[in-house]
Design a protein around this nucleic acid. Structure first.
Lengths: 191, 191
DNA sequence: AAGTACGATGACAGTGACTGCCATCAATGT
DNA sequence: ACATTGATGGCAGTCACTGTCATCGTACTT
């Protein structure tokens, strides 16, 4: 199973992460990543679909955690609150990685191409969340709306979490942001 | 100002739209688009930043319409409802184009690359909407949350509009979707 | 232990998106 | 007429990404 040096995929990820951080994403060639990892360009593309995907390797795990958490949430919860439980779960998971998420986000913020990839991953997350809600028996317009709104909340919360100089708890920020959305849409504030 | 044949940019857009529809986005080369337009590949890239951008030429106009509508909305409206007025405005604008939006969406749906570009355009729309809300005096977490939620509503509504075999009014679908969000998040029914 | 099958990697050629550079052409102003 | 300006053509070059085949290391078989 193994090969010359083990963990080729991990070495590629590490090399890419380092080079993207040092020189910037666009100024880094795939050949350079492969060279630093002791491999060839061709092998890079056997492990990752394209130059961007190496930064999004953990996305499937995140998606599975979200889906399983939402499906396993108490049946008594309203759709939006079941979604919230899922969001808090992935928030906690992300936080376990320490500063990795912040460094990764700094790289993504520096490249429009990477932002595009990030957005389609979030869209995929929303689609999976909607499907999980349907498995809870939630009807279709509601499931899509709840999922999209929940991901929107996650986006805002994660941005606040990354920008925060003060150490904030990501699941808490997510919960607060969701409460903010409820206020905004419920008409309690200004009418 | 002019050149050989007028409206080079328009001819490129038309050629690209036709070829993407006939053969598919990935199976079309920029050289083919330029040839059909009676121009060269080099000239294509002088008018459009990349192969995808030719499909998103009207995005700035849409964004300006959204921003000006939101800024000009009655000051008495709550942020989410000011945003709604803006969304309905661009909904009406899109509807004026007839089946163009549907054909365009069919092309986009067939390519992951194009979906990525669509998503970043929507994110740009959300950022502009948040800024317009701030100009209305809305504070920062609320402005971002409202903008992201509004764009999420727009995404769901537009998808329903495109899928609808029955002719539905896009602004109406948008309003109904927003009411759906209000129910989902707060339990109020829309007014 | 020798042989064999298999999965991962290397090597190489090729396509196509995109860019930089310079020449060229058409319209405009003097 | 002449110079200027802006759009275009032509060309070379880089780089992302793919298809194909040879090769190598490992594991399994005998």
């Amino acid at each position: 199973m193994g090969r010359w040096e083990p963990n080729a995929r991990g070495r590629l990820m590490q090399a890419a992460f380092a080079l993207y951080g040092e020189r910037g994403f666009e100024q880094t060639t795939v050949a350079e990543i492969a060279e630093r990892a002791g491999l060839t360009e061709r092998t890079f593309f056997r492990h990752f679909a394209d130059k961007r995907e190496v930064l999004f390797a953990g996305a499937e795990a995140l998606q599975e955690l979200l889906v399983s958490t939402v499906i396993g949430a108490p049946a008594s919860l309203a759709p939006i609150d079941a979604a919230a439980v899922g969001l808090e779960a992935i928030g906690g998971f992300i936080q376990e990685g320490g500063d990795l998420a912040r460094q990764r986000q700094a790289i993504i913020a520096s490249s429009a191409e990477l932002q595009e990839r990030e957005l389609i991953k979030l869209a995929s997350l929303a689609a999976a969340l909607a499907e999980a809600l349907r498995q809870r028996g939630v009807g279709d317009p509601v499931a899509s709306l709840t999922a999209e709104a929940a991901i929107a909340v996650f986006k805002v919360a994660f941005e606040r979490y990354v920008d925060a100089a003060n150490q904030q708890d990501l699941p808490t920020v997510i919960r607060e942001s969701l409460d903010g959305l409820k206020v905004v849409t419920g008409g309690h504030s200004g009418d």
